[in-house]
Amino acid sequence: MLCALIMAGGKGTRFWPLSTEEKPKQFLNLIGEKTMIQMTIDRIKPIIPIERIFICTVSKYVNLVKKQLPDLPEKNIIIEPEGRNTAPCIALSAFIMKKYYKDANMVVLPSDHLIRDEEEFRNIIKTADKFIEHNSSAILTLGMKPNRAETGYGYIKYTKKGMSISNYNILKVDSFVEKPNKKTAKRYLDEGNYLWNGGMFIWSIDNILEQIKLYSNDTYKALKMINILGEQEIQYFVNTNYKYTESTSIDYAVLEKAQDIYVIPSNFGWDDVGSWEALDRYREKDDAGNVLVGNSKIKDAENNLVISSSQDIIVEGLNDIYVIENDGKILVGRKSNVSNVKNLKEII
């Protein structure tokens, strides 16, 4: 049996001022008509029913989750008192999910990524689940085939040894690599045995808890009492003890230390939509190459990114600029500098 954990506690600071701590990017409709978290749920629902989909988020976003996902059972919202990175989030969620689905496998997904070929994505998830069913001590991740020397992603280095299931290769992971500089990223692309790390994992719940116990024992000890608590007692216990977990990523806490790790090279049109440039890549453009979102209009202008959340914005006779409006703030600059938007927060 396969369950899904969707991590939705991030602050989305790279998309400021559109994304704020009050309403970060997973709750915004950056790419289409639905929000990123709604798109994530819709993508996985054809193979995992809603009662086996869990959302882990911090307390301040619970109402947003309930509003945007009204069909999600309330017990499936796992509440962190504070964000402490992905390792405590996954540990907490695994302990709680195990109470409802004792012997389940678990796919871990970010809440704010774009996947264009959803059918291929689901086929790979089903293949991964089949692999874990027969290799319960393994950890499996999805690695995206790179098409450019990207410096904004971590990488997975794999060996040529592996196996094939349902026409998909499953290869042994050699190492996880931090975000490289441009020269190193080009080398990874040339060498051909590196994949982008998209932060998606499949494992048995029992195995990931065992790995956390082994490699991140403080986190395990801080949360293990969940095993024997009643449903009504869990949140108070978590609120009291979560601060004793190790605030670190699952990559650092477990993946860089575990032995039995595999990767499926995947090609389903993935992007973490982590920058304004990504938004410009995937939003529909008009005939002049402009991206227009919200109450935005353009006249005699080309190759602009114009985003409004509430105010009317009209751009005339300008090319290659960005205009971003949210909550009374309007930012204007050269489009080539749009990645620097987050740095302007200090000025405001």
Rank of each mutant, 00 (worst) to 15 (best):
I44S: 03
E74N: 12
F268P: 00
D251C: 12
Y244Q: 10
Y215M: 04
N147R: 14
G152T: 03
G199H: 01
L114R: 05
K75L: 13
I250M: 15
A138Q: 10
Q235E: 13
I55M: 10
L318T: 04
K126G: 01
C89T: 15
N169T: 05
Y322G: 04
G154Q: 09
S19R: 08
N123T: 08
N304M: 03
K257V: 04
R283I: 09
R283H: 08
P265E: 03
I228Y: 14
M7N: 05
V273T: 10
S136P: 11
N227H: 08
G199Y: 03
E210S: 15
D286L: 15
K160H: 11
L209N: 00
Y61D: 01
P70Y: 12
G274H: 11
H134V: 12
G12K: 05
L195Y: 03
N85E: 11
A222S: 14
R43W: 06
R116Q: 10
N76F: 11
Y220V: 13
K60I: 15
W196N: 03
D271W: 02
T127K: 08
V338R: 13
K342N: 02
I202A: 05
A301C: 15
I208T: 11
I96L: 14
I41D: 01
G12F: 10
N167V: 05
G32S: 07
L229M: 09
Q38K: 09
N304F: 02
I208V: 14
G143W: 06
M225P: 00
E80T: 02
Y100R: 14
I347L: 15
R116C: 01
I44L: 07
S59R: 08
N169R: 13
N267G: 02
L318I: 12
M1N: 09
A4I: 03
G230Q: 11
V65C: 09
I208N: 04
Y322I: 07
